[in-house]
Nucleic acid binder design. Sequence first.
DNA 1: GGTGACGTTGACGTTAACGTCAACTGGTTA
DNA 2: TAACCAGTTGACGTTAACGTCAACGTCACC
Lengths: 151, 151
Amino acid sequence: MKAGAENAASKTYSITQLSEEFSVTPRAIRFYEDRGLLHPRREGQTRIYSQRDWVRLLLILRGKRVGFSLAELREILDLYDVGDQQTEQIRRTLVMARNKMVSLERQRQDIDQTMSELTVACTYFEKLLEERGIDPRAPVAASKRKKVSAA
Amino acid sequence: MKAGAENAASKTYSITQLSEEFSVTPRAIRFYEDRGLLHPRREGQTRIYSQRDWVRLLLILRGKRVGFSLAELREILDLYDVGDQQTEQIRRTLVMARNKMVSLERQRQDIDQTMSELTVACTYFEKLLEERGIDPRAPVAASKRKKVSAA
DNA sequence: GGTGACGTTGACGTTAACGTCAACTGGTTA
DNA sequence: TAACCAGTTGACGTTAACGTCAACGTCACC
């Protein structure tokens, strides 16, 4: 119970491990910390990320994909952190969360609309290509090609 | 068939009409034109927007909401414009559109996830507020208020 | 003929979210 | 001991999508 293994089975990560797992640059991860979204512990100088940090990063990235700003994400994550927030702050965040849900609802409608329009568009584009005698499923032509043995 | 009314029943819009209808600034609309997304006709110096422009703006704004960049939107709208595009350009756009559909599919999953998490979060926040004896449904306290005649 | 309302063209400013160095600090391996 | 990582801290650069002026044009009217 001394060397090596920490007391709990708490897996930790280095910054590059995280960056590879989530396909983001270390720079971005440090940036999120700078903006108060992550608080990894330090071992000497280097950052050590816990499971909790892992989850936070997951939430951050997903949040970004659905249009949250880093500031908004921070507000939300902050509230999950400690409970001794100021009442007004909690209310502010609650309002923000509700608003966000409304806009997400709309976003989903937008996505559905756009998807169906893109489907139509793709069909149209494919028709355009077929009219020119080109297989729309063919891989993108890489600059110059050598008449790929036309069966 | 001469004065005033144009031959067709084609409604037109001024830039401020459009901007009000869609809740964007004239500056933004001009910017979209600068980026090649809109091509209003000119009457002297001022811009005149047609029905077609109206639709385009609708598509632009929705596209933006689901994460398209202006450059991507331009690519797509361009293809709907004229048919004499270069084959390679059509294929590029087709590929882009297909990729976009994949990412939209994922975005919708993200939205669903986030929605359910936000629901949980809101419940949590509300509990926090109730613990402090505060009505979570109450309107946001606007600095100072005058006891708005409850009844 | 002045005074708005509405429109236009530059040109520069701004914000978010990183990218891109450069210079430095340990730890380990050859 | 030198070279080589992985990591760190500034500090400045970059891109997208506008915002914010300033200076000007042009009608309509009063």
